[in-house]
Design a protein around this nucleic acid. Structure first.
Length: 284
DNA sequence: CACCATGTTCCTTG
DNA sequence: CCAAGGAACATGGT
């Protein structure tokens, strides 16, 4: 489910539902999901805490908590991994099969569900320190981006997944941004010229903000019904609300016609992950 | 059975 | 020390 836009939409959805609410009880159903925090510390710290706010940093959800008896705010970090989902459900609704964490909020319940258990909810905030620039901020510009690329021979697509460089791009939007910018994903990072860096910077911002806008305008239902949270990608069985078909132009479209020139879209493998491109529109 | 999947971390090699 | 590559993590869909 998760790259920057999906997390942003989720945070906007959760914020009004969680803000200023008290956690009556916290229950960890899968110890790995709160690692490196221990189950005991996690549950004891969250029990009775007030949720002061929910923010996003890169692909992380940042929950600000005020534990009972604390004056200071502490950070609870959430990451969805590949299959994580978070939502509020009724008290009497049964928990899904791969429930990782449950927060009892009184009249309803917050659920962190994660099929593959790659995601986390943890009190360890250190991962935030390693993150690079937020791609939608003004600090992410062609000048700074070009500076960061110039020492690397790695293919630009692989470089785009490096969270120390651009914090929040993932495998889907990396392919999409390169397509929009007309740049070959194989091109060594440091070989991009100024025009290409400018085009890629703009394409990244555009692809991400369009996805957020799309996700914010579509009717979403996160309450456990995965076929209803329309922004998100679920493999070949993705649902198709109106204007969804235009959203991803190359990702997972190997064998289909490029929407721009009609050439057949290709799938290649880079750093053990799929990249999709139009060999005609992305020659250099 | 085989291969693929929105992510990150850790280990090895150069 | 750094850059780069690959395995590992775990489960399910096709």
């Amino acid at each position: 489910m998760p790259e920057l836009p999906e997390v942003e939409v989720l945070v906007q959805h959760l914020r009004p539902l969680l803000q200023n609410r008290r956690i009556r009880n916290a229950s960890v159903r899968r110890a790995k999901s709160v690692h490196p925090t221990s189950v005991e510390v996690f549950e004891a710290t969250l029990k009775g805490a007030r949720i002061q706010g929910v923010e996003r940093r890169a692909k992380y959800l940042v929950f600000q908590l005020k534990p009972r008896g604390f004056r200071k705010t502490i950070i609870l970090l959430g990451h969805l991994g590949m299959t994580g989902r978070m939502y509020i459900q009724g008290r009497r609704t049964p928990f899904p099969k791969h429930t990782a964490v449950v927060l009892d909020l009184g009249c309803d319940v917050f659920v962190f569900e994660d099929t593959r258990y790659f995601g986390r909810m943890t009190l360890e905030a250190r991962p935030l320190a390693q993150l690079g620039t937020e791609p939608l901020s003004k600090h992410f510009n062609a000048q700074a981006f070009g500076q960061a690329l110039k020492r690397s021979r790695q293919p630009i697509k692989v470089k785009l997944l490096d969270q120390r460089l651009v914090a929040g791009l993932g495998n889907i939007y990396a392919s999409e941004a390169l397509f929009r910018a007309g740049i070959s994903p194989r091109k060594p990072a440091r070989s991009l010229n100024i025009r290409q860096i400018q085009a890629l910077t703009a394409a990244i911002k555009r692809v991400l903000s369009e996805a957020i806008r799309f996700g914010s305008t579509v009717l979403l239902n996160f309450a456990g019904e995965r076929d209803r949270d329309g922004l998100f990608y679920f493999g070949k069985r993705r649902i198709t609300p109106r204007n969804y078909s235009e959203r991803l132009r190359v990702y997972d479209r190997a064998g289909q016609a490029c929407p721009r020139c009609g050439t057949v879209i290709k799938r290649i493998v880079q750093a053990a992950r799929s990249t999709y491109l139009c060999p005609e529109c992305q020659r250099h």
